[in-house]
Write a protein that binds this DNA or RNA. Sequence first.
DNA 1: AAATATACTGAACAGTGTTTATTTTCCAAA
DNA 2: TTTGGAAAATAAACACTGTTCAGTATATTT
Lengths: 192, 192
Amino acid sequence: MRRRIADVAIKMFVEEGYEKVSIRNIADKIEYSPATIYLYFKDKDRLLYEVQTEAFHKLTDHFRDKITDKDPFKRLEQLAMAYIGFAWENPELYDLMFIIKAPMNAIPEEERWEGGDGSYLALLDLVNECVEKKVIKYTDPNLAAMSMWAFAHGLISLQLRGRCLKATSYTVEDLPQVIEKAAREFLNNMKA
Amino acid sequence: MRRRIADVAIKMFVEEGYEKVSIRNIADKIEYSPATIYLYFKDKDRLLYEVQTEAFHKLTDHFRDKITDKDPFKRLEQLAMAYIGFAWENPELYDLMFIIKAPMNAIPEEERWEGGDGSYLALLDLVNECVEKKVIKYTDPNLAAMSMWAFAHGLISLQLRGRCLKATSYTVEDLPQVIEKAAREFLNNMKA
DNA sequence: AAATATACTGAACAGTGTTTATTTTCCAAA
DNA sequence: TTTGGAAAATAAACACTGTTCAGTATATTT
């Protein structure tokens, strides 16, 4: 039943957008009462967190498919492009993975961030290798990993929230290429 | 009256956080009926947009205070640090300026983004000067400006949305310095 | 067949943004 | 000073939201 609810929820978030989906909508779709959902999920934040975890599995799969090169720096490039590509293809999922506050409220102070941790560690491991082999300028892997993440996230979230189009002179057709170009430039600048 | 509502709204957003403030709360505070607000603002998005514009004035003032150096690259550093500092001091305002979707819905397709445009142009002008004087690696000012903005925004918004603390091994006390350090490193990497 | 345990729901609570018909307020002309 | 009309403000309702809880229906065990 938990599965059933989570499956429908993730589908509805993707199709209709997070903001337009309510507990009642989900309950209607699975033809149960809204109260039933609360037997399986403490509250909406907790359900969102479950959906987020699912989404991170999707991202992990996406990474597995796209990160294939032997050279660690090339792999770093592939990771960056895969991250951006995922966001572009799944904007609604990206939203609740990285932008919306709600699902994070469901994680108690001390607990691990199930989904996010895994993906971040994939990046950190790779950056570690790059630092060891001196293929990037950075010497602190944590700082390098966070910087890469922040840059990619910044590009994506400014775009997803409509700030890019309004402030820059780029058009909606340009943006995908512009963002990729910016990412390439960023990677170039951190190359040893 | 428009002013009166906007003033109270901005104050309440800062004090209690965007999510906890409703039209009714604002109406209560100014001792008017909720319906009155709709005589002066089309809807909540429009009110949010007004508050956003106010916030951008604050950011512009902040920039004016902090960006003082003669050297264009140093000025670029000052701008970056001022931006990050502003976000740190006014997280709730930063939220509705750059993260929340709602206020952008109030701007019709063709219209300018009153607040955002100005601040972005300040950055773009400065970057233009840096490109001309060849003090940064970038040759395309638009790309450079967007990259800087994206990087700073990425750092800030990941932090504001609780992703940094959960994924990285940094503590809440470290983060301000870590973010500044990351920004400095980024600027260093783009230095010509 | 009776007792227990599990699964589910109807209805309500307290809140949200928003609209409309109605009332109050105010000011200028008679 | 009274009256007419415009302008300003609102009470009440609509259609939602997340959430809770008392109560019902179903299934399992004794």
